[in-house]
């Protein structure tokens, strides 16, 4: 369906046994220096990429293990804090909350097909690191 281009690896080390990879659509150029840079996006403080395009955020449900690990280990946040922030934005009309996806397949599919999007997955190779994996839709290629 699509291919993974692992083009940026080992951007940031964190102390966790549960490894998470950030994934971005191939339209996005993003190289976080710290967990703050990632947090700014998922808390909707930073709403646009450097090139001015609006960021599309995909996340797993609040009680999902990968979401909990992402919240705590990658961004030093608790899932309830994200929920509060997203609800405040959603019900005051001041922004678009992240879109919830329910499986790793759906996450990969959405991020590969949505321009300016970012999400996260459980690390495929279990390395203890955060990586940014760029996903590229392959509509131009033959199946």
């Amino acid at each position: 369906m699509f291919k993974l281009l692992i083009s940026l690896a080992l951007l940031l080390w964190v102390n966790t046994s549960f490894a998470i990879s950030l994934i971005v659509n191939d339209s996005v150029s993003f190289s976080p220096d710290s967990s703050k840079d990632i947090r700014n996006i998922f808390t909707l403080q930073q709403t646009h990429w450097e090139n001015g395009n609006k960021i599309q955020v995909f996340v797993f449900p609040d009680d999902n293990d990968v979401h909990q690990q992402f919240s705590k280990s990658v961004t030093q946040m608790f899932p309830y804090q994200y929920r509060r922030i997203w609800d405040r934005v959603t019900f005051s009309g001041t922004g678009l909350a992240p879109t919830i996806v329910n499986s790793m397949e759906e996450m990969l599919e959405k991020v590969s097909q949505t321009k300016n999007s970012i999400g996260y997955i459980e690390n495929i190779d279990k390395h203890q690191s955060i990586r940014v994996i760029i996903l590229q839709g392959d509509e131009n290629e033959a199946q």
Partner: peptide, 18 residues
Amino acid sequence: IGLNAFWQVNDRVDFSVQ
């Protein structure tokens, strides 16, 4: 009871209603 919609028109403009 509340019902709202958010429409992202483009990178600069959006509309929201509840």
